[in-house]
Design a protein around this nucleic acid. Sequence first.
RNA 1: GGCGACGUACCCAAGUGGUAAGGGAGGGGUCUGCAAAACCUCGAUUCAGCGGUUCGAAUCCGCUCGUCGCCUCCA
Length: 477
Amino acid sequence: MSGKKEEFIPFTPGKVNMYVCGITAYDVCHLGHARSAIVFDIIKRYLRYSGYDVTHVRNITDIDDKIIARSAQEGISTEEVAKKYTDEYYNDMELLGVSRADIEPNATDHIHEMVETIKGLIEKGYAYPVDGDVYFEVSRFSGYGKLSGKNIDDLKAGARVDIDERKRSPLDFALWKSSKEGEPFWESPWGKGRPGWHIECTAMSSKYLGTSFDIHGGGADLIFPHHENELAQSEAYSDEPFVKYWMHNGFITVDKEKMSKSLGNFFTIKEILSRYEPEVVRYFLLSAHYRSPIEFSDVQLNEAELSIDRYYTTVLRIDDFLQSESNIDRITSSAELEDIMSGFRHKFHNAMNDDFNTASALGIIFELIREVNRFLDSKPAGQRARDFVKQAYDLLAEIGGVLNIFNKTPEEWYRALMKVKKIDITEDDLLKKIDARQNARKNKDWSAADDIRNELAAKNIILEDKKDGTSWKIKVG
RNA sequence: GGCGACGUACCCAAGUGGUAAGGGAGGGGUCUGCAAAACCUCGAUUCAGCGGUUCGAAUCCGCUCGUCGCCUCCA
């Protein structure tokens, strides 16, 4: 609310109520929608990891002008439009690995609550009906503009909206819209109509989380007018502070411009997932702070892929080492690794406690990865060394789990890459070729061995020779 | 026009008063049959520019330049 970072103190100790604006179900989702979903999913996961009991509400707007337009265009009902794109949305979210919210309310299931709220606002003098519409009178609410940092006079001066003579001020916004011929409607004290966009969040958040709750999230483009209006309605209605902490994620940009429907410069989630692993998308989005704009490009996604691969390559080494059977204890100098390990959780928590600084958290992970690799390079041996490495691995897995990345085995990662990169060789055939090459190598037939390696390299498969075998990887980046 | 954000190495990106995390690319090296991976090493005396505050600033203040966003639906 202050526009600054503040210490997080929830209304009820240990309990966090968060409401995040979902989507309007009128079209397929693009990467921008994915960012919001992923960012708040990680925020929720971290809060839970930190011991909070989190209730997460994410709404779906299933009736509005765009849905009506789409319904006319596709020749199906608004319910069918909403159903179709809601299903698509949940499907995309599942593919991306975004967890479900605890409560996922639809606007049309809460018409009654909205009507009650609107009635209350009229009674209190904050809203007025005109010809079957109901408007919120912005000038009645003294705090209007406090979220977006705007003031009413500036807004009036810069108003680009068409002037509606029936409204007392151009800034007044609709709580209820009368329905035109052929449009879907619900009965109300003001006649047949449908709710305005903002009122659903007021009605549903107070129903599920109470009139005051801790966190309200959404994309930065919702700050004005959506959240400003929500705030005005809610506080006017309840006389309570609406939300303690507003959190808005930044945009995804393409050539520095906001990715958006209207500019047409968007990439759908499906398109991207046809070329990249979901984990790559998640990593990419976590590699910048959630409030910053983040530039989308294949170069960026390739770098994310490369970073993840570095992780799994290290895990592969860790696995090899843990399976080694040497009983000779040989703990090599590990002061640096011990050092990093002992401060690791603390550093991670510091990063995340500082407004969920995931980019910094990733940096910390790679510091540990480097030290683990250094330790393994120093040729340690024995059970103590194995326990030590296992500990490091568990730390990485724990933190990866919170960020919802690094949750595969290396084998799963490479198999997934094989699929997404459409490499046309079965794992069986691949292993046979590796076998054949091992034989050649045993016979010191280097040219035959190199031929096989080159042949696989042409398919973007990389072989790594190690002491006790050869492992395969998929070329990334 | 009003309001706001941002500008850190070749690229991406942390860092909001104490002397520049991390990843990628690149040069050199160790290891390897050769590779790959990994590790070591080199790489911004410097944080858009100019002033100011301070013992000390990328970090605070002012101005300039540049980019973007919101003010209309938008994650």
